[in-house]
Design a protein around this nucleic acid. Structure first.
Length: 111
DNA sequence: AATTTGACAGCGA
DNA sequence: GTCGCTGCCAAAT
């Protein structure tokens, strides 16, 4: 286990995102207790250890857009897999945040 | 220990 | 609607 509590926490949260749902970097950062640490979440995603099996493709920006090409081999690719999981995409190519933005169970918030 | 970087977010032009 | 700068926080070098 790495002592990197922050990254570890990000991975925990991301791994909790159900299929057909997405979360934003800022959202996750807020869960960690640092609403301004969205960039750290992004960095965590970039450094996502494969063995953790983290659905980083479900983590996108608040605009419903995702990284230009630093992910999975292409935005279109990510869009396909998200769409396949049940995430709704708008005509403009962005994720329908209103429907698919994931939120942590209220009873479980133990930040 | 200090500096640079970075898959963001928010506001301004 | 697109491009730009700033702010914030943690990790990597």
């Amino acid at each position: 286990m790495k002592g990197s509590n922050f990254f570890n926490r990000v991975y925990e949260i991301v791994s909790q995102i159900p299929e057909g749902k997405v979360a934003t970097y800022g959202q996750i950062a807020a869960m960690l207790g640092s609403p301004r640490a969205a960039r750290i979440v992004g960095e965590a995603m970039r450094r996502t250890p494969e063995y953790l099996d983290i659905p980083c493709h479900r983590v996108i920006s608040k605009d419903g857009t995702m990284a230009p090409g630093y992910a999975f081999g292409g935005e279109g690719k990510q869009r396909e897999m998200l769409e396949k999981e049940g995430v709704i995409f708008k005509e403009n190519g962005c994720v329908d945040m209103q429907r698919c933005l994931w939120r942590k169970p209220i009873m479980e918030r133990d930040e």
